[in-house]
Write a protein that binds this DNA or RNA. Structure first.
Length: 212
DNA sequence: GGCCAGGACACCA
DNA sequence: TGGTGTCATGGC
């Protein structure tokens, strides 16, 4: 059985991303950088409670106030600055239109997002896949750890290389990429931690390198 | 009290 | 261009 099918059988459909609108997905993508999603939810709930989870309202919020609201997500000063860079790109350069941000070819959209300070490859790809529904495979720390332990790549494989591995071997389908990445995160959270819990892991029999 | 969590960037050699 | 330090909260 293929890895994706095995994970789907074990965890069930994930129906990602946890966010009500494409804009909320983009905000979440920045806030979740190197951070537990539970903490991000607290920050997003703060923004909702203050009724500022919209491009214009968030754009007009001063740095200090924004930083306080997103404090639970950690790195709040840096993330406030990164959010404001994205909001400036969205509101000042694209009229506050998420549709306009994601208009055009995938490669061009990605390049424009990567030019925004604070948006790196994973954050850009998360936005493109989960907010825009365009087919690009998101690579994160879990994906690298899981596939290096399975023996498909080196532990320190580059983002570009492992993404190429997926895009070459998995059919280009946004719904499939969405589900696959979400399932990998579930596996990472529950089993493939820095200290792996291999006993009940659904990939246990496939993973000869579980101890590395 | 330590480990870990859905990164990105500045700085340095 | 590759390695290292920095940013920070909260759950387990």
């Amino acid at each position: 059985m293929k890895i994706h099918d095995r994970l789907l059988e074990h965890f069930g459909p994930q129906n990602w991303w946890p966010g009500d609108t494409p804009f909320e997905v983009c905000v979440g993508a920045i806030l979740t950088q190197n951070t537990n999603w539970g903490n991000v939810e607290k920050a997003i709930n703060n923004l909702k409670a203050r009724k500022v989870l919209s491009p214009k309202a968030l754009y007009e919020l001063p740095h200090g106030e924004l930083a306080v609201l997103i404090k639970p997500s950690g790195y709040f000063n840096i993330k406030a600055a990164r959010l404001r860079h994205f909001l400036s790109f969205l509101v000042a350069e694209n009229g506050g239109s998420i549709k306009r941000v994601f208009a055009g070819k995938l490669e061009d959209v990605r390049e424009r997002l990567l030019a925004v300070k604070g948006i790196g490859p994973e954050t850009a790809d998360s936005m493109i896949l989960y907010a825009a529904g365009m087919p690009i495979f998101v690579i994160d720390a879990y994906t690298k750890r899981i596939f290096s332990r399975l023996g498909f790549c080196a532990k320190d494989v580059s983002y570009h290389d492992i993404q190429g591995l997926f895009m070459k071997n998995v059919p280009s389908d946004a719904a499939l990429y969405n589900e696959y990445h979400a399932l990998l995160v579930m596996l990472g959270k529950h089993f493939c931690k820095p200290k792996p819990l291999c006993g009940a892991c659904p990939l246990n029999k496939m993973c000869a390198k579980a101890s590395t």
